[in-house]
Amino acid sequence: MLALISTILAQLAGDGEAGMKAIGAGLGYGLAAIGPGVGIGIVVGNAITAMARQPESAGVARTTMFLGIAFTEALALIGFVVFVLLAFA
């Protein structure tokens, strides 16, 4: 489905190869951002549950949550890097 949409959009863009490359990069970046988004939601959701259950350990939960968010975000950064390399490098 995504490949079909990419093909149609590339044809609409006119310049076949360049259009395809740009659309592929854009789709890749977008898709790469979905996974970390879901992951961050899970991390924060569970951290909130932990803080609600044990307020005295909120500090530990927040520290772990922050590191978890940052690790999950690395995946989005890799998606961004692929986007940069595919589209413009």
């Binding site: 307020p55 005295e56 927040r62 922050f66």
Partner: peptide, 18 residues
């Protein structure tokens, strides 16, 4: 009774980590 973590920016653990 539980003692909540200070909510001000000064003692915030994520800020200390950052």
């Amino acid at each position: 009774m539980t003692k909540p973590v200070p909510q001000s920016g000064e003692g915030a653990p994520e800020r200390a980590v950052a």
